[in-house]
Nucleic acid binder design. Structure first.
Lengths: 337, 337
DNA sequence: CATTGGCACTCGGGGGCCGAGAGTGCCAAG
DNA sequence: CTTGGCACTCTCGGCCCCCGAGTGCCAATG
């Protein structure tokens, strides 16, 4: 069924097609690769590969193009990822090392990934659901307004304004702040709702509405929204599609602005070591593109996803390597910071 | 030189070309507009307009297209902006009303503007240089690390980690926080550097290195960076360019990722009432596009810019109206919040 | 003197045609 | 099983030609 030579032929077809973007024929195959057999033999193998659905020809008398299935087989048979070169690693460190806060890390990471892969890069902010509370701050901004600032152990900062029904005593704010911090600092975000409920109950009657308002605001900013925060970069790389504009680029541009769609594309948060590849029709939303994604985080459990969006005919090996390298670097960065 | 009828003809040419994107000839002009004269007369006028540089023909025996100069004259003769309809205003209020914090306001504003104009929208965060300090917060995050959080009166929040040379006493942090707030809360950001210098000098000798580190960090986050924060949306609208991809869309996509370029395109912060229009070659960076921008802010003085990027053949009147309306709405929103 | 109808002229774009080239499938021989 | 040969099939680019939209100019007109 799938002897070694057939695999070698498929591999050669994928490589050639990825680099030239033109259907590849039997003759050019034997020229560019040392396959040790003649073009006629290759033609036979190609006919077999086509029967099994791994390659196709755009029209009679043209070369072959890998199908989604062909790419899938190719990717599955990539035994291991080559490590990045020393120079590449140094470039990553250089690029990300000077970040000043989490926003900056996210921005730089996304641009770096876009630049390395020459595709559209997507990086999700660390999920609150999988983080710990580091600190809560209450900042009075005017008589009846308090800014509630929540800081996660990943460095992510969420803030929001709470409107309270009556003027607040500074002492009460102070008390509430220390009680909130004592109760939930260091705890996972998912436990916040439970812990905080008791604090409202323990509040003396007159202050309860104000405290309830602040706590409600806190809970709102802690709960994950569907259009969770993410950064996208590298749309300019779509320019290289050029001709196939209408068919490929337009839907991609549309998707890029729909964060909800992107989130679904990135897939479920997985371990930080698996690189997930979804090819063509494997993701129904964008059947002409591929997504390569992985989780990143402090340690083996992922706090969020990052990945790359590109045409199905992309350099899977190199892109997977870059995605993996960036994810593990940002993981280290978060652990230190 | 420029009698009324010539202006009417130019106006008609611009309108037709904007809506059809095809060179417009004398015959179709008299059909679609009530000009009261024959096509031959229009031809004479058109020849005159071409001599004066307001219109051009892509090749002999084609209709006329407005030149940059023609658009400029057209825009300058738009005597006043029609106000938005009630329904449009309600849509804006509906869209922006539910924002929860400044980040959310920026995001929603940009998307709204992109949607209203069907172009690429750019919204700059309120400039710190033109804001007042509302509050400063120091949050110890570990032994030798303090997160410095600065909140502006516009609602903008900047945070950054300071590394101090020795472990900090909570009491010292507390003291520093209150002294910093007492000194600069309510003051403009531009004065922060001066005021804060004295605080370091007044610190007792042993704590001075730590305080200096924190203050240095504060100053860093207060100083405006060249790639100041901004939000971009509506890149999907570029898909409508379709055919002219290589020439028009690719450089635009590239520019969109270069925030420094965008900043320069938006122009200098002007009053909140002027709508600035830069057409084609008037902005050297993107000679085939037009930029429509204005300032927004709390009151008549602008704290930042917002605008729209599109092809030179765009609906200037409608776009200027939308830019103005969104800017004034977000100004009101900031003033209330 | 501005306006108008008429008319010759000019290109750009689309359609049709053709030949070159690349690639295939099949077959018969090694 | 492999290989060289060969007939066949398409796509693509070039070429040509005609159509039509649009122009500029001119002479006539009120």
């Amino acid at each position: 069924m799938l002897d070694d030579r057939k695999l070698a032929v498929l591999r050669a077809i994928v490589e050639d097609y990825v680099s030239t973007h033109e259907p590849v024929g039997s003759k050019s195959l034997v020229e560019r690769h040392q396959l040790g057999v003649s073009a006629a033999t290759i033609r036979n193998e190609m006919a077999a590969l086509e029967d099994e659905g791994y390659i196709a020809q755009p029209h009679t008398s043209a070369g072959r193009i890998p199908t989604d299935l062909g790419y899938r087989l190719f990717v599955d048979r990539l035994n291991e990822l080559k490590p990045m070169s020393g120079a590449e690693n140094r470039a990553i460190a250089e690029f990300l090392g000077h970040a000043i806060d989490l926003d900056d890390v996210m921005l730089r990471t996304t641009r770096l990934l876009a630049q390395l892969t020459r595709q559209v890069a997507i990086v999700q902010y660390p999920s609150l659901q999988r983080s710990l509370v580091r600190h809560i701050e209450l900042v009075p901004v005017s008589g009846r307004r308090v800014m509630v600032v929540v800081i996660a152990d990943t460095g992510r900062v969420e803030q929001r304004i709470a409107e309270v029904p009556l003027d607040l005593e500074p002492a009460l704010v102070e008390l509430l702040r220390s009680r909130l911090n004592a109760a939930i600092a260091g705890k996972p975000f998912v436990e916040v709702a439970d812990v905080v409920a008791t604090i409202v109950e323990e509040t003396e009657y007159v202050n309860r509405p104000a405290v309830a308002a602040i706590v409600a605001c806190l809970l709102e900013s802690v709960v994950e929204r569907p259009d969770d925060r993410m950064v996208v970069a590298g749309a300019a790389n779509l320019a290289r599609y050029g001709s196939q504009f209408e068919t490929s680029v337009a839907p991609l541009l549309a998707a890029i602005e729909e964060h909800v769609v992107l989130l679904r594309l990135l897939g479920e948060a997985s371990s930080t070591n698996d690189v997930l590849v979804r090819i063509g029709a494997e993701n129904p939303a964008l059947p002409t593109s591929s997504v390569i994604s992985t989780g990143y985080g402090m340690g083996p459990v992922a706090v969020a996803q990052l990945g790359v969006l590109g045409p199905t005919h992309m350099d899977y090996s190199g892109t997977m390597r870059a995605v993996h390298a960036v994810a593990s670097y940002i993981g280290r960065l978060l652990t230190e910071g």
